[in-house]
Design a binder for these strands. Structure first.
Lengths: 353, 353
DNA sequence: TATATCATCCGAAACGTTTCGGTTGTATTC
DNA sequence: GAATACAACCGAAACGTTTCGGATGATATA
């Protein structure tokens, strides 16, 4: 049906190899160049990337597996990643796995069968078995936002512990004593790190944390609503609360709205991410923001680097470095950690002694 | 490197065709089944979809081209589409074209070269030349949200005119007289339809619209901020405003916040989309909501239908129906139009006579 | 003019599947 | 036990590229 390189060869009277060479940037005689271009135009020839991929054993596609497409933190990063990869000739297949481990594995397997050249993953949890195929095949893997202990590979994360610590410290500095947190689920490392930062700030004050001030949500809007209502009910004396991701922040604002709580007079809050949302809240929210665009840039550059200088797999090593096996790889691994910052709003009250 | 069907054949002593048949659900003797499965396990065989795609001339991939990944309206729809397609054995490649016509064309061309089986597009503007290749190749196209006049193909849209009309009518019903709108850009059909609905409601009242009440934004947060500030400044007597998409709604809320305007006492508003955001606003916003999940479902089913019963291209027709050319196709085309609904909040004031 | 150099061109083989048409072997029927 | 039916099996060709090694022709050099 569609025109092939053979049709072009036939039409121009040239050989297959010549057409192929021309298409891939090779030189041909001027008269032939014209003939080829005319034939391409006339037959509506378009290169068949499937065939090319089979032959070259590289698809120029990077797989991206994220827990949720419908999540601004993810999409901001992906937008940034895509931009850079596209400018380097790579396309992306984005797979949303609905925060489901099964679907995540399916997505990774699917991408493997599609023979993508590398994979970028914001993992659902801290296990990494689903990525083993890629590791074994020597194809680059870059993790976003969450690291996987059992799988050594490049990653880009933010300093979650410090982010939460600094936010909670700000509460203490402003004279707050009862500071709550709506944390994320236990199987997500960022959630645990943020909770750890929260605890660390308490420890610095030499204070014991009342357990009732910690609510474990699951990074959803609903858990934000529920968390806020629970915390407020169980801690009538709570004066501040840290909302540990964007969905929880939004959920908490809904709860605050419905309960008729006044910010910052009744309660001070520090939210997370999405500056536009923070500005649209009344009063404007103080939030911790993550450098999503920067994350995307780092991720993209990391994987491009690996695509050009692949890490040797164990099988490739020659006799010389049989002893220091893997050490080279290990040394090459890059763990990039970026810093968050706090953008001041009007949701924080200063409590006088 | 990676194991192939040949390796399995060699290892099991069976023929190539047998392995292939087994992989595709064919029957083999029980003893052979075990041998094959063992070999697959041992050699870590994974089917090569690139090779399969070349041979079968079908990739089981649907391309999705949208103006912006970083847009909740888009991602909600895609999430829903993806879910259904995946359950029918199709994967998706999502391309964000940054609301740029050039990039949109590049994305479509890219997907064509990748030989995707069909394409779903939320077009940047009303021209459709970028999709011609797919039309010509007889591959299904489904448009979302915006129709393209010159290109007859399936589409799923919402009744934008009625959506805006009903919202504005509600303002009039509540006694408002000076009702503004922050509209979208002129080259996007939904923006024009919503503006038309706004005008229609005015006409029903037999009133002339002061031009100063109409602000043309571009569907971004920034234009929402700017639009609100402009409208308020130029129309001190404006009592209500319709915000014609989610970004504009958020932007307007930022503007309202910064100007210290009280809702609904100083100004009543009706926003668009994203119910969670509406609930998080203070007071809770009244919004027009679009059925994103339903849109996604319809889109997915439409393209699945077409994949199974492809429309005949002009070239395929035989002599018998040479006269009624294309009529069959035309009749088959489905334009699905869905309705929005208004979710009441507390951002609307009733004005007494 | 003869030789060397170099750009351009070429066909065949290969990538890993699916599929066609045909062969083998087992079970069923008479 | 022969004839029949049918499931299971098989190799070769094909899908549309890239690439290898070599052939051809034009130009520069002697």
């Amino acid at each position: 049906m569609a025109a092939t390189i053979k049709d072009i060869a036939k039409k121009t009277g040239l050989g297959l190899a010549t057409i192929s060479s021309y298409i891939n940037g090779g030189n041909v005689r001027e008269t032939n160049r014209i003939k080829i271009e005319e034939a391409i135009e006339e037959l509506h020839y378009e290169i068949n990337e499937v065939a090319r991929g089979l032959k070259t054993n590289s698809t120029k596609i990077i797989g991206v597996v994220i827990p949720e497409l419908n999540n601004i933190f993810c999409t901001e990063i992906i937008t940034s990643v895509e931009d850079i990869l596209r400018n380097h000739g790579y396309a992306t297949i984005v797979c949303d796995c609905r925060t489901d481990v099964e679907l995540e594995k399916e997505a990774v397997d699917f991408l493997y069968r599609k023979r993508v050249d590398g994979i970028i993953n914001m993992p659902v949890n801290a296990k990494g078995s689903h990525l083993r195929k890629f590791k074994k095949a020597g194809k680059p893997i870059v993790l976003i936002d969450r690291v996987i202990q059992e799988l050594r590979c490049d990653s880009v994360v933010v300093d979650n512990r410090k982010a939460a610590h600094d936010a909670v410290k700000q509460f203490f500095d402003q004279g707050h004593k009862k500071i709550g947190i709506i944390a994320g689920p236990e199987d997500i490392s960022t959630a645990n790190e943020r909770l750890a930062g929260y605890m660390e700030a308490w420890e610095e004050q030499g204070l014991e944390i009342p357990q009732s001030l910690i609510f474990r949500g699951d990074y959803t809007i609903e858990s934000g609503v529920e968390g806020l209502e629970t915390l407020v009910k169980e801690n009538p004396d709570m004066t501040g609360v840290l909302l540990s991701n964007y969905e929880i922040t939004m959920g908490a604002m809904i709860g605050i709205n419905e309960l008729g709580i006044n910010i910052p007079d009744d309660l001070s809050v520090i939210g997370f991410d999405n500056l536009s949302f923070a500005r649209a809240c009344k009063p404007k929210l103080t939030v911790v923001t993550q450098p999503t665009e920067e994350i995307g840039m780092q991720v993209a550059h990391l994987i491009l680097e690996r695509l050009e200088h692949p890490v040797k797999t164990a099988g490739d090593k020659d006799k010389n470095n049989e002893n220091n096996r893997d050490t080279k790889d290990e040394n090459l691994i890059q763990d990039i950690k970026l810093q968050t910052k706090i953008v001041e709003g009007k949701s924080m009250k200063t409590i006088k002694e």
